[in-house]
């Protein structure tokens, strides 16, 4: 297996936090959503494989008592992909699950996201996907809130 090269720190690189956010948003998207996001930015999902998409494991770490020493809680399947564009940009994806197609699309998106000219279109497509996810989360939070217990004290006799 060819090992993926370290991403070189380039001048004019975007805020790493912004890239992390874009990668996280892409990770929440379905393959259809990723294809649509790429199409919206006028990108054909083609790239050279730096490393073919592959499924493996990560060990999920918990903490004793929730906040103490780490322990191994169990593993999870993860699929990763690494691609390179003709311009040299490299894109990566690591997602829970076994969907290689999805990981490869997200890696292509990550690579193109690093091209300043593609970024705004991709950011707006990812923001729309994230907004749909947020709406679903808001709905779930409202349903959970309806099951919150409201205690009341029963009035007692004399006073």
């Amino acid at each position: 297996m060819p090992s993926a090269s370290q991403t070189p720190p380039e001048p004019g690189m975007p805020d790493p936090a912004a890239r992390r956010l874009a990668m996280a948003q892409a990770g929440q998207a379905s393959p259809a959503e990723l294809r649509a996001a790429l199409a919206q930015a006028g990108i054909t999902p083609e790239a050279e494989d730096l490393r073919p998409a592959e499924t493996g494991l990560v060990m999920v770490r918990g903490r004793i008592g929730g906040d103490g020493r780490p322990f191994n809680a169990g593993e999870a399947t993860v699929t990763r992909a690494a691609v390179r564009l003709p311009g040299g940009e490299t894109g990566f994806a690591y997602h829970l699950g076994r969907d290689r197609d999805r990981a490869r699309l997200a890696a292509i998106l990550d690579a193109h996201w690093q091209r300043p000219e593609a970024r705004p279109a991709l950011d707006s497509a990812l923001a729309a996907i994230a907004a749909r996810r947020a709406e679903a989360a808001r709905q779930a939070a409202r349903k959970a809130a309806a099951t919150r217990v409201n205690f009341f004290t029963l009035a007692r006799g004399e006073d």
Partner: peptide, 15 residues
Amino acid sequence: RTTLPRFGATEALDT
């Protein structure tokens, strides 16, 4: 799971 490589360990999750 025995057929898969392990990529590493996650950051400890925050419950």
